[in-house]
Amino acid sequence: MRTYDVAPLFRSSVGFDRLLDLLSQAERVEPSAAWPPYNIEKVAEDEYRITMAVAGFKPEDIELTQHDTTLLVTGQRKGQDGEHQYLHRGIAARTFRQTFNLAEHVKVTGASLENGLLAVDLKREVPEALKPRRITIGGAQGAVGQDNKPVQIEGEANAA
């Protein structure tokens, strides 16, 4: 396995601490973190879906928790395995704990369990106050706020 030294990035960047921490953590991923298998897909411009293969689990066996930018998915079967005598057990029934690091302003909008696949829908909703805004230069000192009007450059209106 290749290892990457991200120390030079720490020295030359400001405000990317979380991203660089994620890169460092990626090197230390445990093999058990790959179970259950999952897909992450982009559904629309600001919408995503995580699909996990959780065959044998019921909705009440799975718990989803979002805390800030972390989504925690845990599963623990509460079935009556003592009643069955298995000759071969190929469907895993072990408990799992999967953590997903989400970008800022990404929220879980829904979850469903169908045909052994858990689908978690996510949407990025940036608050209006944090969206990019145009800032006017000079002039009135009382002008505070956002100005997103088209700019009319003098001389261009007469040239057209």
Rank of each mutant, 00 (worst) to 15 (best):
L23Y: 09
T136G: 13
L71E: 09
Q80V: 03
A103R: 14
D17T: 01
R18V: 00
A111Q: 13
I62Q: 08
A7I: 00
R2K: 15
A53I: 01
E60K: 15
Q66L: 06
R133C: 08
E41Y: 10
D46Q: 14
V43C: 13
R18M: 05
R28K: 11
G82I: 03
T109H: 05
F96R: 12
A7E: 15
E63M: 03
E45F: 09
R97E: 10
A33S: 14
Q146P: 00
A44L: 07
D46Y: 12
L117K: 14
N115G: 12
E114G: 07
P31T: 00
V120T: 04
Q66N: 06
R77D: 08
A111I: 04
Q152P: 06
E154G: 13
R2P: 13
A7Y: 08
G145A: 08
P127R: 04
T3R: 15
V29H: 11
A93W: 01
G56P: 03
E30C: 09
A157K: 13
D5E: 11
K78Y: 00
G110F: 06
G139F: 00
L122K: 07
R94K: 11
Q66I: 02
K58L: 06
S32T: 12
V120M: 10
E63W: 05
R124K: 14
V43Q: 15
E154P: 02
A55Q: 11
R94A: 11
L122E: 09
K107E: 10
Y86W: 02
G138P: 02
T109Y: 09
L72S: 12
L113D: 06
K149I: 00
A34E: 14
G155H: 04
V43E: 15
F16I: 01
R11V: 02
D81W: 00
A93Y: 03
G79Y: 01
D17K: 07
H105M: 04
E156R: 07
A143S: 10
G139E: 10
V126N: 11
L117P: 04
G142R: 08
K107W: 04
Y38H: 14
A55L: 04
K42E: 15
I40Q: 14
H67D: 15
H67K: 12
H88G: 09
M52P: 02
G75W: 01
A26K: 06
P31A: 13
Q25I: 00
V120G: 02
R94V: 04
G138K: 06
F100G: 14
A33V: 02
E125P: 01
H67T: 04
A111Y: 08
Q80P: 05
R94W: 06
Q80Y: 09
P36F: 05
P37H: 12
H105A: 07
Y48V: 01
A33H: 09
P127H: 00
I50E: 13
L20R: 07
I135S: 12
